[in-house]
Each structure stands twice: as structure tokens, then as C-alpha cells.
Design a protein around this nucleic acid. Structure first.
Lengths: 168, 168
DNA sequence: ATTGAAAGTAAGGTCTA
DNA sequence: TAGACCTTACTTTCAAT
């Protein structure tokens, strides 16, 4: 049975299969993609074009292992700044090359930063550099369980089963 | 003139230019890439193959805007678990679809999670589900300054200028 | 379905250690 | 001379009208 056109109001089952394959390998050809989902290459290309137009697909990125390019130390830094400074701080944080990701968050912290550095000495330098924006707390990454989950469909079962029913 | 063979002991200038272009668009053709860096397509393909073999390039991923696919709420959750439980917890966290990224960190926190959910109610459910692993602190993302920096070369100037010399 | 573009393969040239 | 790196030419596969 087919089932599942617009299951979630947005993407049908074929769209999700295409997205799953593109998450694994964004350089896959339309032909292979079509073969995998049972469509012609032009049909797949058209679907992908629509996903791009709708803003679902933002682009395609190479996945670089920074620890193999001289940035072996990774950390999260949460930064607390004076509330009124956040716009200015945000602009300045963008100038700092070591910051790989930067999010403004609600709560006592102002920003969460994901950083990549070449050494502990380098990290120390970075923390000192951030000091003038406010207080920071650094958590050095010991290991990455996963940095990017493969999402094959929306999590939809959460309403049906209660957390307390799960096995320990 | 060429210049820059193994400037940093790892990648030469051409490798970095290729990586920069692949970060912007991982589906760019070898021909375009070659044109941009002044090489033939097979030469570029060969360089990329070597970067893959060396583990610098891990793969190619589609960049999906999850807020356009039914996951409008993003948050970071730091989770503190009993030390001895971390291996078991790590395995169980992988089963939770809502967790988009999961890192084991040093310090008082055990894990940092990046999650994507469909609603505040969904987030509440997730937090409850995480409760049995230990204590959690949730920071809801207000805005993303940037989630993935374009890295065009290694940050190498950090040793030369002191943080205190920067403009305010 | 046809046609141009891209990828993959093979053969050969240059430079350097 | 061996190897790293490049080029051109050719064949096969892919994308798009």
C-alpha cells in the first residue's frame, strides 16, 4: 500500500526517502535516487527543486572532520552577557574564526558556542578573548555520540506513549 | 606561481579553496571546481579522493531547515548523569529521535544534547523522558547566529595577537 | 529520446627528491 | 629512477529539453 501523501502536512513518504538518501550522501545522482524510490530521474529532480524552493533543503555541505585538519579540540562554551549587549556581541562573535556554531538562547545564558581549536593553549586564548563579553563556562567535548542525526521521518509517536512506560 | 605546498603540514592552498567551495555547495561539479582553482576536472577529483581517503572529508550532507519540516523548536539540553552510567545512557540517547546531536563532555555536565521538537508540549514530554537519566537544564534557542561556519583556512593568527588588544 | 555536460579511466608529461 | 601531480583524450554515465 502506498499511504502517506502529506502524512504530516508537509512531506510525503517519497520526499522523506529522498531526504534520507541525501542526508547520507548529498552527491548521489538523480538517477540513483530515482532508482531507489521508484521514480524517474527528472521526477526526482523536480521534487528536489520543490524542496529547495520551499526552503526545506537549504543547500548541500561537505562534512569535514576538523580533528583531521588541525582542530583536534572541540568544546561548548556558554556565554552570559549583559542583556542589552546581545546584538553587538552577536556581531562580534561572528568575527571569531574559532566559533563553529553560535546560538542565542533563552535562560540565564545568552549564547551557546560550539568551538574548534588547535590545542588547549589555543582554547585558553579563546576563553580569554571571550572574557570581555561576559562570563563563560566551557565544556570540553570528550566524544561525539553523533553530531547529525539521520532523520527518516518526523517523530510522531511522542503523544501516544508516556515516558514513564519505557524500559530502564 | 603556485606557492603554499603543505603550508600547515596538512592541506595546501588549493585543497582549502576546494573545501571552501564544497562547504558552500557540495554538489558543485568537478569541472566548476577545477575552473575556480585553475586545475582540470580529473585533478580536482583526485585531490578530493585523497581528502576522503585521509578522513578530512567525511561525506556530503544535505542541509535541511528543520523548522520548515515540522520541527520549529530547537533547544540545547545539558544532562548530568551518574558517572558510571554514561556508556549505557549514551546508547539510550541514540534511540531518542528528537536528539539531533549528542556530545559527552568533561565537567559537571555529562552530555550536551541538541534537540529539535514540534512544539513546547513536545519539548516538555522530551524533558520528562530524559528525567530518568539524571538532571537536565534546557536552553531554548531564540535564534541561530550561525550553525556552521565557512572555514577557509586554519585560524593561525591567535598566537600573534593578544585578546586584550582588540577593539571594543 | 536526443543532446550536451559531467564523471571516470587511461596514457603520458614534468618536476623533484 | 621513483613518485607526486598534473594534462589531454576518450568512454561511459548523467541531466535536461
Amino acid at each position: 500500500m502506498t499511504l502517506g501523501f502529506r502524512e504530516d502536512g508537509f512531506l510525503d513518504r517519497t520526499d522523506w526517502r529522498i531526504l534520507a538518501l541525501l542526508q547520507k550522501d548529498a552527491r548521489i545522482t538523480y538517477r540513483e535516487l530515482g532508482h531507489a524510490v521508484g521514480l524517474s530521474a527528472p521526477a526526482v529532480a523536480e521534487r528536489i527543486r520543490k524542496l529547495e524552493d520551499r526552503g526545506v533543503i537549504r543547500g548541500y555541505r561537505v562534512d569535514i572532520d576538523w580533528k583531521n585538519v588541525g582542530l583536534p579540540v572541540e568544546a561548548f562554551i556558554r556565554l552570559t552577557t549583559p542583556r542589552e549587549a546581545s546584538r553587538r556581541v552577536s556581531a562580534q562573535l561572528q568575527q571569531i574564526q574559532e566559533i563553529m556554531g553560535c546560538w542565542r538562547v533563552a535562560g540565564p545564558d545568552s549564547f551557546i558556542l560550539r568551538v574548534g581549536v588547535s590545542s588547549m593553549e589555543h582554547l585558553e586564548w579563546l576563553i580569554d578573548r571571550l572574557a570581555r563579553f561576559g562570563q563563560s563556562v566551557t565544556s570540553i567535548v570528550l566524544s561525539t555520540t553523533f553530531a547529525e542525526r539521520l532523520v527518516e521521518t518526523l517523530p510522531m509517536d511522542w503523544k501516544t506513549h508516556s515516558p514513564s512506560h519505557e524500559p530502564s
